Computed example of a mutant assay.
Amino acid sequence: MLPAAHRLVDSDAFRVAVRSGRRCGSRNLVVHLDLQAPGDPARVGFVVSKAVGNAVVRNRVKRRLRHLTREHLPALAVLPGSAVLVVRALPASSRATSVELDADLRRCLTRVMS
């Protein structure tokens, strides 16, 4: 579970990160990263639509992504400004293994952070 300070729950922050941030897509995920004013900790939000599957499948995908992104919080903390990361799961993510999701997440994070 992500600590409360690192959860992105504000719909306006989601919208700003998706519209103005950097984006990288893969087979299973789309990652949006927006750097905002410094001071706040890095925050992470997830978008898992009904196209991914039923509620059980969507929650499983969210749990797996939450676990994987927790490992990347220290890297987001060293970025200039406050990082807002939005991870959008694509329908293929319901069939992907944790190793595949991790590889896609790492690749996309590397691209949006450079």
Score class of each variant (00 low, 15 high):
K50V: 04
L33N: 09
A96E: 03
G25T: 04
A55P: 05
L65C: 02
R106H: 08
V48E: 05
G25W: 02
S11W: 09
T97N: 07
R64H: 13
V47Q: 02
F14A: 09
T97W: 07
R63H: 08
D34V: 03
R43W: 10
N54L: 06
Q36Y: 03
T97Y: 12
P41L: 10
T97I: 03
H6M: 08
A77V: 07
Q36M: 14
A96V: 11
L29T: 09
P74M: 07
R70S: 04
A55D: 06
A13V: 12
G53V: 05
Q36K: 13
G45Q: 13
L76V: 01
G39A: 01
S98N: 15
Q36A: 15
E71P: 13
S98C: 04
R27D: 12
S94M: 02
K50F: 05
R106A: 14
R88Q: 13
N54M: 05
S20H: 10
A92P: 12
R15L: 12
C108Q: 08
M1W: 01
A89I: 11
S20W: 06
V18N: 01
S93P: 00
L2N: 00
R7C: 11
A77R: 08
A42R: 07
H67E: 14
R64S: 12
L105S: 05
A92T: 15
R27N: 07
D10I: 13
L85W: 03
R70M: 09
V52Q: 11
V57G: 12
S94Y: 05
R7K: 13
V48M: 10
H32L: 05
S82N: 08
R60F: 08
S20A: 08
P41K: 06
G53C: 09
L35N: 11
E71G: 11
R15M: 04
R95N: 14
V86F: 00
M113F: 03
P38G: 07
V112K: 12
A77F: 06
L109H: 02
V44W: 03
R70T: 02
M1Q: 04
V30R: 02
A42M: 04
D40Y: 09
Q36D: 15
H67F: 02
V52L: 06
H6V: 04
V56S: 06
L68Q: 00
V30I: 09
A17P: 06
P80C: 10
L76A: 00
V31M: 02
A4R: 15
N54C: 07
V87Q: 03
A83T: 01
A89C: 12
M1G: 13
P3I: 03
P41E: 05
F46V: 15
R106M: 10
R60A: 14
P38F: 10
V31K: 00
R22N: 09
R60M: 10
V61K: 04
N28S: 12
E71S: 15
L101V: 03
L68E: 00
K62I: 12
A75N: 05
S11P: 14
A37L: 08
L79R: 00
L2E: 01
V30T: 15
A4G: 10
